[in-house]
Design a binder for these strands. Structure first.
Lengths: 92, 92
DNA sequence: TCGATTGTTAGATAATTAACTAAATATCTA
DNA sequence: TAGATATTTAGTTAATTATCTAACAATCGA
């Protein structure tokens, strides 16, 4: 979870996740959406991958990234815990 | 929202929020829960305050911190948007 | 198999951040 | 008002991070 929160703290990475919500995208398609070098985007993707917020799969010449919602659901649970009745213990 | 995600990326600050979910606490009471100097905790509190995740109120000699759930609800909405039906646009 | 395309890895640098100690500020009490 | 308590602010340092360019690796098509 710590990796996930760290990964989510960067606006570029959150935007990447939002792009991937619409549809799966190759690394290059993702990089095209930003004024940032491809290596930097590759680095952001590897952080998202390490946090298990995305998964990647090679398709021929391309590497296609897609959302992995499992960890996002855990984060959602954390927030639900925080917003629940006063004194209730959050999950984490 | 960016400030909020940044603030939430630090485990110490998330623990502070969880402590404040149980009850309001003074800066000193919060600092007592950690092996970190008071000035460092004060700094974490100021980041949480800037992100509007907490509010503070002086009560005599003490400064009492309490949760502000408004921004947390917005973050919750962000996650709900991400987890919603594929292709649906998140709020943010 | 050669050249083009796609993406990652390596290495460097500048900016941000979390931590500390020391000093300042604010409040209370004797 | 002087001293004690509570907290923040200032200033420093070490670690982390986001970015870049250059070089490497993998795949495809002619």
């Amino acid at each position: 979870m710590n990796d996930a929160f760290k990964a989510l703290s960067d606006p570029t990475r959150r935007t990447i996740l939002q792009l991937l919500k619409e549809r799966d995208l190759s690394a290059g398609e993702i990089a095209d959406q930003f004024n940032i070098s491809k290596p930097s985007i590759s680095h952001h993707l590897s952080i998202l991958k390490q946090a298990k917020l995305v998964q990647d799969e090679r398709q021929g010449q391309n590497i296609v990234y897609s959302l992995n919602l499992t960890v996002m659901q855990e984060a959602l649970g954390w927030f639900l815990g925080m917003i629940g009745a006063k004194g209730d213990k959050p999950d984490d």
